[in-house]
Design a protein around this nucleic acid. Structure first.
Length: 423
RNA sequence: GGAAAGGUGCUCGAGUGGUUGAAGAGGCACGCCUGGAAAGCGUGUAAACGCCUAAAGCGUUUCACGGGUUCGAAUCCCGUCCUUUCCGCCA
């Protein structure tokens, strides 16, 4: 969430910026400002009452020590009203603070200046593109047919075991998955990211920390018996490593990478767009996470974008980078670049990575802070990106590299797969 | 799942209902000492919110979390959560 201070000190600016996200913030921001004023006033009164109470209590203590029991008992009389008043004020302050947090959670992150105007995915701006567009014969197959033909992925078997969206990878299909994961992790390590293996289930506090809760509750699988959530991305457990942590300036930027399976309910999305590997309930992804100081976070974002680009280039896939418009950005992001690769048989661009700077939005909920060289405490900026999500990469690899002899494996992966052709 | 113990500051660890934000130790930082280092000595070492234009300063809160008793709670009572150990089960 945005910080109270930022909102109350930049009312006009916040409202104006949020327009770009299609969020009408005027009313809620006004409510926040009013409530904050009331909160301050209430705290002043409560603090005053508490201070008075403390003084009297100390006096009573002293009187008892001096054996002046009668005087002490007389002093007690004074506390009754004050105690009642204090209770009321403290309760009111508590309520106000709770209400404020509730409101703040409903306000999305303000978009960066460079975020383009726009309402939907169609308004995203193509930032750059590259790679070679393959020319496939008319007989080219979509990846779900290729997967069947070469016995790489069994979607029906997944339905039997779990349900739609939980494919079973087999033989060279499974091997290709493992190869990609290892390749991505090795590359991330070379780029200075420290690998972690996080838990795949998280508690509610972690869900709140990164912003999945409360707004996106329905998108995660919830384990009711233990009140835990299956992670929709490694971003959640990895970023939460830094929840309630005060880092040292010299430790920044923190760079982590993690492989994890990701679980998403994807409620309400069906149809031809979700066929095959295009949209799954469980998929593999290697994530990169960075924690940085505010003045350096956009440099970090650029570095992450550059890094992800090298991955898609290594894989010899046609790619493009989109700068997401205000309307297509996530609730919590300030600036997002999406990576898409072209899947030549489907003739579609598929999103394989999303790289975002959340500025202090997540950090504020996480209480992820750092101590500057002159000992001041500030919120960090958090960033993350996929590097990369596997299924759509696999879809594009299968489709784009299909030949009469079989499916060609990109050179960089051969040491990992142990084969260069799927026959 | 059964039984027991316990949750205090960066860490370890003490804590009698009344200057305990919290002894002591370690760590860390700075200073002195040294040719340099170690040792030694000294000093410092929580966060949030509020008041104040800001700094300084002051106030309030915080000893897992939530409630209760009390003039006053780290300390007593109740509930919740978590951790550890032993037993059982098990990759």
């Amino acid at each position: 969430m945005l910080t109270l201070r930022y909102i109350t000190e930049n009312v006009e600016d916040v409202v104006k910026r949020l327009e770009k996200k299609g969020f009408e913030a005027k009313d809620i921001v006004k409510e926040v400002v009013d409530l904050d004023a009331l909160r301050k006033q209430t705290q002043m009164q409560a603090d005053e009452a508490a201070a008075e109470m403390n003084v009297i209590s100390k006096e009573i203590g002293l009187l008892f020590q001096q054996g002046k029991g009668a005087e002490a008992n007389a002093a007690k009389e004074k506390t009754h009203n004050l105690k009642e008043k204090l209770k009321v004020l403290a309760e009111r302050q508590n309520e106000l603070e709770q209400k404020l947090t509730e409101l703040l959670c409903q306000i999305p992150n303000t978009p960066h200046d460079t975020v383009p105007e726009g309402k939907s995915a169609e308004d995203n701006k193509v930032e750059s593109q590259g790679g070679h567009m393959p020319e496939l014969p008319a007989t080219a197959l979509p990846h779900w047919d290729l997967a069947k033909k070469y016995d790489l992925i069994d979607f029906e078997l997944g339905v039997k075991i779990s349900g739609a969206g939980f494919p079973v990878y087999k033989g060279k299909g499974a091997r290709l998955q493992r190869a990609l994961v290892n390749f991505f992790l090795d590359e991330a390590q070379k780029a200075g990211y420290v690998e972690v293996q996080p838990p795949y289930v998280v508690n509610a506090a972690s869900g709140y920390g990164t912003g999945q809760l409360p707004d996106k509750e329905g998108q995660m699988y919830h384990i009711g018996l233990d009140d835990l959530y299956l992670i929709p991305t490694a971003e959640v457990p990895v970023t939460n490593i830094y929840r309630d942590v005060i880092l040292d300036e010299k430790d920044l930027p923190v760079k982590n990478t993690a492989y994890s399976a990701c679980f998403r309910r994807e409620a309400g999305s069906y149809g031809k767009d979700v066929r095959g590997l295009n949209r799954l309930h469980q998929f593999d992804k290697v994530e990169i996470v960075r924690i940085d100081k505010p003045e350096h976070s956009y440099e970090s974002l650029q570095e992450m974008v550059n890094y992800v680009r090298t991955l898609v280039e290594c894989l010899e896939l046609p790619w493009r980078i989109l700068r997401l418009c205000g309307g297509d950005m996530s609730f919590t992001s300030a600036l997002t670049f999406d990576f898409e690769v072209f899947s030549a048989a489907q003739k579609r661009w598929l999103e394989v990575s999303s790289v975002s700077n959340f500025e202090a939005y997540q950090a504020n909920r996480l209480k992820c802070r750092y101590r500057t060289a002159d000992k001041k405490i500030q919120l960090c900026h958090t960033l993350n990106g996929s590097a990369l999500a596997l299924p759509r990469i696999v879809a594009a690899l299968l489709e784009n590299n299909q030949t009469e002899k079989g499916i060609r494996i990109p050179q960089v992966l051969v040491p990992y797969t142990g084969f260069d052709l799927i026959q």
